[in-house]
Amino acid sequence: MSTVLAAPSLPLSRRLARPAKGALGLVLFLALWQASVPLVGLEAYFYPAPADVWRAFLDLVAKGILPVYLIDSIGRYASGVAIGTVLGIACGLAIGISRLADRTLSPTINFLFAIVEVAWIPIFVIWFGYGFKTILIALTYVVFFPMLYNTLVGVRTVPQVFVNAALSLGATRLQLLREVILPSVLPNIITGFRVGAGFAFRGLIFAEIVAAKSGIGYLIFEGAANHQTARTIVGMIVMGLLWLGIDNLYLKPIERMTIERWGSVTTAERRE
């Protein structure tokens, strides 16, 4: 929510009031939760209090479990996203530029797209066993499609006049690709990357629940299976914070950067 940043003209009181109210919402939520525990009167495994969750968090850190799981998750995530991104861009460019590649690959890709990634996990487990390989391939699969489709849209919407201008300046096919098509497609690639990175994060958690023996997803699952529900909630909160971190520290800045230099520029150019 960049509303605070986007509205510098608001009076100061209002600018402060908004995050304050948001924090109030979170605090109210926690307070209601804590206060409701004795009222509900259920077992801690069924309805743990925020304090229980905090203790479970400290315990997991002290035993070194959480850092190890976190590193495992991030490693799997980064590798899968990287491979899926590269493959998706490559296929998107190939299909966008070559009619033969389009005709050969598109039907297969559309067919594969209809089988949602979660449905692949069982067969991946059969083929690659539990753990890193299966998760890596599943994440690659998840990232591949948004990357491919966005790249493809980008290639198909490169303004023809840019292509014509480059050709008239004597560009070879390779120069055309490097100097015109790739930079022109970059904003679409960034969009695809953000979408794919989001899908992959959900995919990671699911894959770790079903097909791993470590990681944040596994922590969430293991906690519930052993009736250590506070651990499950720690896992969920860490997961949420991890995603917010990835989104705000990496994905949004990358997008903003390219929009500043490419996106708004390109639209302005096209409007005239």
Partner: peptide, 26 residues
């Protein structure tokens, strides 16, 4: 909007599937 957005943003960032284990308990 002011009251609920941060909460919803956070809850949204917990991917739906991560609720399954908790849901099993409940």
């Amino acid at each position: 909007s002011d009251l609920l957005r941060p909460l919803l943003t956070f809850l949204q960032s917990i991917a739906g599937i991560a609720w399954v284990p908790l849901a099993i308990i409940w």
